[in-house]
Nucleic acid binder design. Structure first.
Length: 164
DNA sequence: GCCAGAACTCTGG
DNA sequence: CCAGAGTTCTGGC
């Protein structure tokens, strides 16, 4: 039941940016090329709205990592643990799924569970699942497009070098 | 209600 | 190259 969900679609450097939120915080962030494709999965109950969080998320996507945006993440305890670990990755850094598993004190056999939790993440960029790559350096997959993941990583690394 | 398969993987033989 | 490993969700029976 998507009650009280509001959303806004704004332009950003990677195309169209969708931000959806409730009274408790941002619950959905998606990237895409077409507004309809972004709005569709929200369901008919979501209505357009405005929030300072939208601007904060757009700033974050554009390369600055400051947003102290409250997140309304409803997931299993396991998924929350993974997402928390993801948010601890500094900008410009990349980690493998194995590193995440190790950081969470999980057995090396549960790596795929980490991947599953990442795939279940609805909040792009704010939970930096795009900073997670394969152990061999491959970009792996990305729910919102591997090309976008690549651009996000390249820009973050570029910004990190510039401000370094 | 149960079983099987998928989802942003990694390791060993 | 193939199979298996931990978690969650979904669909079919």
């Amino acid at each position: 039941m998507a009650e009280g969900v509001r959303y806004a679609i704004v332009p950003c450097s990677l195309g169209r940016l969708l931000v959806a939120w409730t009274e408790r915080g941002v619950c959905d962030v998606a990237l895409g090329d077409v507004d309809d494709a972004l709005r569709d999965p929200l369901g008919p109950d979501a209505v357009p709205g405005r929030s300072p969080w939208v601007d904060a998320v757009r700033v974050e996507v554009d390369g600055r990592s400051t947003a102290d945006v409250p997140l309304d993440l409803h997931g299993t305890p396991f998924q929350r643990r993974v997402w928390t670990a993801l948010r601890r990755i500094p900008p410009g850094e990349t980690r493998s799924y194995a590193e995440i598993a190790h950081d969470l004190d999980l057995p090396p056999t549960s790596i795929r569970a980490v991947g599953g939790a990442c795939a279940a993440n609805r909040v792009a960029v704010l939970v930096p699942c795009h900073r997670v790559v394969r152990a061999d350096g491959g970009l792996s997959g990305y729910r919102w497009g591997v090309e976008r993941k690549r651009r996000l990583l390249e820009r973050e690394r570029g910004d990190a070098q510039l401000s370094f």
